[in-house]
Design a binder for these strands. Sequence first.
DNA 1: CTTTATGCAAATTATTTGCAGCCAA
DNA 2: TTGGCTGCAAATAATTTGCATAAAG
Lengths: 131, 131
Amino acid sequence: MCKLVDTARWQALLGDVGIRATTQRVLVLDVLAEHTRPISAQQIHAELYERGEPIGLTTVYRTVSSLAEVGLVHVFPQAGEATYRLCGPARHHHLICRICRLVIERSQEDDVDGFHAEEIYGICAACRRGT
Amino acid sequence: MCKLVDTARWQALLGDVGIRATTQRVLVLDVLAEHTRPISAQQIHAELYERGEPIGLTTVYRTVSSLAEVGLVHVFPQAGEATYRLCGPARHHHLICRICRLVIERSQEDDVDGFHAEEIYGICAACRRGT
DNA sequence: CTTTATGCAAATTATTTGCAGCCAA
DNA sequence: TTGGCTGCAAATAATTTGCATAAAG
């Protein structure tokens, strides 16, 4: 598990979904891949900056937007700022812990009284029992 | 079902939760009571304005914040802007339809694999079958 | 080459804060 | 009376847009 940017992998992925594989998009995907929890555009920008890979904040916003559009990332509209997370290709919905921000991807349907659940916010098992 | 401001009722309610029953808070509660779906602070402000009851936008923000703090309203952090809705006193969680914004209050627990659901976003039965 | 993406600066939009005056209890 | 509440103006903060330049296919 190296920490180098896996350029080829992201370029292929971007090609698959039909958008240009630019340097910036690869970098953003790389940062997203390092996180299991959703992160904000500002955070992506900051991490790339620290990494010595300057990128326009505007570009980060436009990139996560594009990535969301083609289904590679999921948007979590938080209070104050939106956060983003890489998404598996399979159809799924999410369980999001409001304490630790853990995201669980679930493939099976969760329905309650005819209501079709897509995003479930709550408290995960670990946080419930006190971490 | 009259449309006049039910001042006494809101004053009592505010007294119960231990905050001052000001003119503005009563007005905000009145607007909230007219809506079954969550509405934004800006919308509350606009409706009071049209109604000829000018109120500072700042006050609206501070009011919904206070009301949320004492448990009278629930905050739904949407993309872009937060929305607010009057809440019943009983312990409950919500099902929120992303299409029609319908909110269903549910008293019984909804848990999935040890995850405790508090807010469930998805599609309501009506919208699923095409309105 | 041609189209699409980038990035800076400026504009928008939602929300918060400072502070002086007002009002409910 | 008096501490909490209001509202204006100004400050923040996140996100978007215009436009000229750069890079991908």
